[in-house]
Design a protein around this nucleic acid. Structure first.
Length: 107
DNA sequence: GCTCTGACTATTC
DNA sequence: CGAATAGCCAGAG
């Protein structure tokens, strides 16, 4: 499958946008993609999966404020450490991001 | 250049 | 409100 090396323009763009998100703030996959002119919300997640070790992947959440599938526990730890506004919810993760306050948009 | 897959999203049941 | 379906894009084989 897509091994996503840094050679791809899309991959590189995603990494740059994520790196632009300040601590305590988050963006949805769709918004990140839209920021550099593409709507590949899914592709963004794939870049995170492969390069998640080198970027603040927890600052990128799904639409609705849900953390990435299979990483909700690790993400929550980062949010609490950075002071990201969370909201208790009846979701598989047991919580969600408060997009009303945490959602950030590049200036 | 076609096919398969995926840390997604929006819509419908 | 939860689960299923269909569209979506980009990259590797």
């Amino acid at each position: 499958m897509a091994v996503f090396e840094r050679g791809g323009d899309y991959t590189d763009a995603v990494l740059q946008v994520v790196d632009t998100i300040p601590a305590g703030r988050v963006m949805t996959y769709g918004d990140v993609a839209w920021t550099f002119g593409r709507a590949g919300a899914r592709a963004v997640g794939m870049v995170m999966r492969y390069h998640g070790s080198t970027v603040a992947w927890w600052r990128v959440v799904r639409a609705g404020g849900h953390p990435p599938t299979g990483h909700e526990a690790a993400a929550r730890a980062h949010y609490e450490a950075e002071g990201t506004p969370l909201v208790p919810a009846d979701t598989p993760a047991g919580y969600r991001i408060d997009l009303k306050r945490a959602l950030w948009s590049p200036s």
